[in-house]
């Protein structure tokens, strides 16, 4: 099972990197979303994988899933939402100021969108 998770992390990271290398803001946002999935999964897996272990304390239960990475990842998910939102709005503002959705602020010369 660990192999599958490791491969998933790898695929998500690879996909994320590829998309962030694109020059249009939307692709970069997609890439960052994917990278944050990968990072969150990676952090989560630091507590090792555990199937059917208790997450809530109960008398008589000995085996628990590691709660610490879970707590860390929980806030990371919310923060990455904040980051994605900020990035998207920043890109809208940049589009307004520069007239382009190119991440390096290059102004479109050919077709694409016309403002």
């Amino acid at each position: 099972m660990e192999i599958l998770i490791a491969l998933s992390i790898g695929i998500l990271t690879g996909g994320g990197i590829f998309l962030t290398l694109k020059s249009r803001i939307f692709s970069v946002v997609l890439g960052l979303m994917m990278l944050s999935y990968a990072v969150n999964l990676f952090l989560f897996s630091m507590g090792r994988l555990s199937i059917n272990k208790a997450a809530i304390l109960k008398d008589g239960v000995q085996n628990y899933a590691d709660p610490l990475p879970q707590a860390l990842v929980l806030t990371a998910i919310v923060i990455s939402f904040g980051m994605t939102a900020f990035l998207i709005v920043l890109s809208l503002r940049a589009k307004k100021e520069l007239g382009s959705d190119h991440i390096d602020g290059q102004v479109d010369t050919k077709n694409g969108d016309k403002n």
Binding site: A6, G10, T13, G14, F42
Partner: peptide, 9 residues
């Protein structure tokens, strides 16, 4: 990048 992170994990 993908292979690296998969191996690392």
């Amino acid at each position: 990048g993908g292979i690296g992170s998969a191996i690392l994990s």
